[in-house]
């Protein structure tokens, strides 16, 4: 089953830890040169899936092919062509900014002495050109993430795994990283991204794959998912007001979702929601087009997963 256009091909993947099924028949295809987002609540199997793709753990069943290499058998060759930005900060604190690139290059079998120019380009790309000799403890969270990103680029990989790359960053730092991801995508690299931020997924990804309970529950382009899985409009009301309107059950084309102290009322027609809103003019409410967040709740429920 050769698929040259696919950077990543996963078929019917299974992984169980001590009787608990974490990945349950997952299939996935990522076309070369695209950015694909993996979404899902905590415990949906995203991290385990990434570990399986990197060959860090062996699947119980299923086939994985990354850049044409069979995983886990040829994982080392695949990793030689992959860049990984992990969820946790694993920069090397024993080294300064440039030394982090210098020694990382060695792990790829490269001679770092021949790469000075490339390091300069990468540090400029990351906006760290003035921080070459800075110890890591002097870097902000955003700078550390950018350094982690360019460290994953020392060997000019054709594909990147980005595991929640902007978690915990302020809006400016996040925006800066998004620009970098877009540029990498423009350069023709394939990006596989996991994220909890729907805005990030919507802005960056060509396609999204929603995971839950270790399997794919939906996939498609961001707007396509919104069209397919939720009504186009939603009204957000305080739960109290919702009860006053008698919105406990679904009725005439409206679908309601209770989440903590808020009720979400979904409708095909904006007028239906406006009519509802006119019945309680004093209520602080918000009528908006539905978005990926609504898709996420619709597909994976709203119970806390931690």
């Amino acid at each position: 089953m050769d698929d040259n256009a696919a950077a990543l091909l996963v078929t019917d993947l299974h992984k169980t830890y001590g009787g608990r099924t974490v990945v349950d028949g997952l299939s996935l295809r990522v076309a070369r040169g695209t950015c694909v987002g993996l979404l899902g609540p905590n415990g949906a199997g995203k991290t385990t899936t990434l570990r399986l793709l990197l060959g860090h753990t062996r699947p119980d069943a299923g086939r994985i092919e990354v850049l044409g290499f069979s995983i886990p058998d040829a994982a080392s060759q695949a990793r030689a062509r992959l860049g990984v930005v992990g969820q946790s900060d694993n920069l090397d604190p024993d080294f300064n900014v440039e030394e982090n690139l210098y020694h990382y290059a060695r792990y790829y079998g490269l001679d770092p002495r021949a790469l000075r120019e490339r390091f300069t380009d990468l540090l400029t790309f990351a906006g760290l050109e003035d921080r070459r000799g800075a110890p890591l403890r002097e870097l902000s969270g955003g700078m550390r993430r950018r350094l982690a990103l360019v460290r994953a680029l020392v060997h000019d990989p054709v594909m990147l795994f980005l595991d929640e790359p902007t978690t915990g960053l302020d809006p400016q730092a996040r925006f800066h990283l998004w620009q970098r991801f877009r540029q990498l995508r423009r350069e023709g690299r394939t990006l596989l991204l996991t994220t909890h931020y729907m805005e990030e997924a919507e802005r960056l990804c060509d396609r999204l794959v929603v995971l839950d309970h270790g399997r794919v529950v939906a996939e498609g382009a961001p707007q396509e998912l919104v069209r397919r899985h939720v009504e186009p409009f939603v009204l957000e009301l305080p739960a109290e007001a919702g009860r006053g309107l008698g919105l406990r059950e679904e009725r005439h084309g409206l679908r309601t979702l209770h989440l903590e102290e808020t009720v979400f009322v979904y409708a095909r027609a904006r007028e239906d929601l406006e009519a509802l809103l006119s019945r309680c003019p004093e209520t602080p409410a918000r009528l908006r087009p539905s978005n990926l967040e609504d898709v996420f709740f619709a597909l994976t429920g709203h119970a806390l997963r931690d």
């Binding site: 990197l54 860090h56 994982a75 080392s76 060759q77 990793r79 030689a80 992959l82 990984v84 992990g86 946790s88 900060d89 694993n90 920069l91 090397d92 604190p93 024993d94 990382y104 792990y107 790829y108 079998g109 460290r151 994953a152």
Partner: peptide
């Protein structure tokens, strides 16, 4: 604690 191995394990090193 330092996760140096984790960083290295993302490269071809096993």
């Amino acid at each position: 604690p330092q996760k140096t191995w984790e960083g290295i394990h993302a490269t071809p090193l096993g």
